[in-house]
Design a protein around this nucleic acid. Structure first.
Length: 674
RNA sequence: GGCGGAGUAGCUCAGUCGGUUAGAGCACCGGCUUCAUAAGCCGGGUGUCACCGGUUCAAGUCCGGUCUCCGCUACCA
């Protein structure tokens, strides 16, 4: 039983998602090629506030929205050769029923408690507001238009009910605080079980087990808020009318529900797949949803008497060109956009060549991508077939395997090692070994010189022998690569009239058979294709840029990261007393990670001590003597290292990217900024 | 600050149990070749194995420490 995480029905599939689905699909295809019984299950994750809001905004029902989204997801996956045994939806009767079963089990074991929760409620939309649907003024620093859970500028975390002047992003209305009963899972009651499972089962990569032990298991596990009051798009809780299961409760159960549908269609028993110790259960997920799958989910399975995962395979995120993907730079490439510009096999191979079994982010560099495809796949693998293709079609394959200097035997012997790498999800290692075999195969053709043999009619047998060797070496590669490149395996099978269906076909040469006319199997990719893809992707979502004098090409990213605050009056601005100040002392605060201690002079004897979070951006030496702009009438604040009596103005996202505001020539300490 | 990962050729990375002169692919240079998709073959490496110290007959590898980068996490005006 193998699953990938259920994609949320709120947006299209992009190349970041595809890391996981390609990784899983390769592993599943490998298992099947090895003759293992293996079922690959997935589904759309369809519930929650976001879906409800979006459907409302688009003026259609949730059911319509998720149906359309499911169709588009499945088309994207099909385009990349992701071969699910079944693709379902969390919004189905099977799931509702299974959720009820899990719920009852958890009730029976006394894991559920009820408590009132004060939450912001939008009286206009008649909706409780999730954190991200509220914006307001940060209670800590006063920054405007901040989201409901944390403040961008100061990083403070708080509850949305703490926000000053909160506004609903749905209606713009001022939310009211409303108490509503919520149901909680007392996860702490499963603490011992989870600790044992994480420690003993071997289901988790060591770094993940370590992370959980350090961050969650070290203290008491908090109750998990598992219900949402109406209105909510999801399943109503049978014994708590007006309350719905939180989407993260029914989503993983969707794995089982989707399996149930598959069972029904194929005459299988669900128990054999989810309640049998004869069946391995493998989840492939991204690191962002680690704790749902390593704490809540095992707890739920345990409570309901289902089999626990054999392995939770966790992968990292995709970067593009060394940076996080982003819409504005066009690196967040939609699956559909990719397919307009490049062959899906390329991405499958590229990811395979980068993926290991650890939780590590991977990087897609356009140059590296093009190099790998053109050198490895086209130059080495496919070209091997291509260079004898024409001759082989004429001669066919010899009846007995000719002398090849041990090449075929060596490649056959490498099969187990390659298989082990696949099995362990060390795809990069597998690809490396396969390319070594391809490297060894090409010199054979060179030395045998089939093009010379071809000119001499008397040497037809010799030519056939050479073709037999080269063709079989290619076929071995195609078999080893079949999990990654199913299309190539298919092409190879058609060419030689012998479909690739089993791994151990790599151990025996194909002999005494005719060969179909050779057709090219794969094209080189020009780097421009990737540039166009990114260009195209940038245009995909954004309106065309109407740039009259955009000669500086400034990104809109900073503004998006921190949208404009609400309008204020001149009087409100006047309350802020900004002054020019001179930094007369600057020193490190050894215990602080980000802070420098500054002494500012406002001229004369007026001094202020300020702690500024600019340590990563400036050294004390760079600062002494500089004029800066400070907030001079800010209430003093006691910090761990002393009293901070003001604030130095600076811009930038933070860390080393902090830029102090300067003062042009002539400004004097103590002068007010108007 | 805590936890985890990484640092080896211009780039991407192998390097097993400590054991010969530290490797591969790509890129680059020279030659050969013309079957093949301007593909292929042969040859070409002067690397501070991040740094310092230790153990050892022997350290890229083991131990201790330091630095840098990445991820998560905390603190942070």
């Amino acid at each position: 039983m193998v699953t990938s995480a259920l994609p949320y029905a709120n947006g299209p599939i992009h190349i970041g998602h595809l890391v996981e689905y390609i990784q899983t699909d390769i592993w599943v295809r490998f298992q099947k090629l090895r003759g293992n019984r293996c079922v690959y299950i997935c589904a759309d994750d369809t519930h929650g506030t976001a879906i409800m809001i979006r459907a409302g905004r688009e003026g259609r029902s949730e059911v319509e929205l998720i149906a359309q989204m499911s169709e588009s997801h499945q088309a994207d996956f099909a385009g990349f050769g992701i071969d699910f045994d079944h693709y379902g939806s969390t919004h189905c009767d099977e799931n509702r029923q299974l959720c009820g079963e899990f719920w009852q089990a958890m009730r029976d074991q006394g894991l559920i408690v009820q408590r009132d929760v004060a939450q912001l409620y939008d009286p206009e939309s008649n909706t409780f507001l999730a954190d991200r649907f509220v914006r307001g003024t940060c209670p800590n620093c006063g920054a405007h238009n901040q989201p409901g859970d944390n403040c961008g500028p100061c990083g403070a975390t708080y509850s949305p009910t703490d926000l000053i002047d909160p506004k609903s992003t749905l209606s713009g209305a001022t939310p009211i605080v409303r108490e509503a009963p919520h149901l909680f899972v007392q996860l702490e009651k499963l603490h011992g079980f989870l600790a044992d499972w994480i420690d003993q089962s071997g289901a988790l990569q060591s770094e993940t087990a370590n992370y959980l032990k350090g961050h969650f298991l070290a203290k008491e596990l908090r109750d998990w808020d598992i219900s949402r009051p109406a209105p909510y798009f999801g399943f109503e809780i049978p014994d708590a009318p007006g309350h719905f299961w939180y989407v993260w409760f029914d989503a993983p159960i969707g794995y089982i529900a989707s399996t149930a549908q598959w069972c029904q269609a194929h005459g299988e028993r669900l128990e054999d797949w989810w309640k049998s110790d004869q069946t391995e259960i493998h989840h492939f997920i991204g690191k962002d949803i680690t704790y749902f799958h390593t704490l809540f989910w095992p707890g739920m399975l345990h409570a309901a008497g289902y089999q626990l995962p054999t392995k939770v395979h966790i992968h990292g995120f995709l970067n593009v060109g060394g940076e996080k993907m982003s819409k504005s730079t066009g690196t967040l490439v939609a699956a559909e956009t990719y397919l307009r510009h490049a062959d899906p096999s390329y991405l499958r191979y590229f990811y395979a060549s980068k993926l290991g079994a650890r939780v590590e982010d991977l990087d897609l560099g356009p140059e590296e991508f093009v190099d790998k495809i053109n050198s490895d796949l086209v130059g080495k693998v496919v070209n091997l077939a291509s260079r004898v293709g024409k001759f082989a079609s004429r001669t066919g394959l010899a009846a007995t395997y000719p002398e090849d200097g041990g090449l075929f035997a060596a490649a056959a012997a490498a099969g187990e090692e390659i298989a082990e790498a696949y099995e362990a999800c060390e795809f990069a290692r597998a690809m490396r070994r396969i390319m070594e075999l391809a490297d060894a195969a090409n010199p054979f053709v060179e030395r045998a010189r089939p093009w010379d043999l071809n000119k001499d009619p008397d040497k037809l047998d010799e030519l056939r022998d050479v073709c037999t060797v080269a063709t079989n070496l290619f076929r071995q590669l195609a078999i080893y690569l079949a999990p990654v490149l199913p299309k190539l395996a298919e092409q190879c099978g058609q060419w030689l009239g012998d479909p690739i269906v089993r791994w151990d076909q790599s151990q025996t040469p194909l002999l005494g058979t005719a060969v179909q006319p050779f057709q090219r199997m794969m094209d080189r990719i020009p780097i421009e294709a990737l540039h166009k893809m990114i260009e195209d992707s940038r245009n995909d979502d954004d309106t065309p840029t109407t740039d009259p004098a955009a000669q500086w090409n400034d990104s809109d990213q900073p503004l998006q990261a921190e949208p404009l605050a609400p309008e204020i009056t001149i009087d409100e601005f006047a309350k802020v007393d900004l002054r020019i100040a001179r930094i007369i002392e600057a020193e490190q605060v050894p215990e602080a990670n980000k802070l420098l201690r500054l002494t500012l002079s406002l001229g004369g004897t007026e001094r202020r001590q300020v702690f500024a979070g600019i340590k990563a951006a400036y050294t004390p030496e760079q600062l002494v003597g500089r004029l800066v702009v400070m907030v001079a009438n800010l209430a003093p604040r006691k910090m761990r290292f002393g009293l901070s009596e003001g604030m130095v103005t600076a811009a930038g996202p933070g860390g080393a990217e902090v830029f102090l505001l300067g003062v042009d020539e002539g400004g004097l300490p103590g002068q007010r900024v108007h």
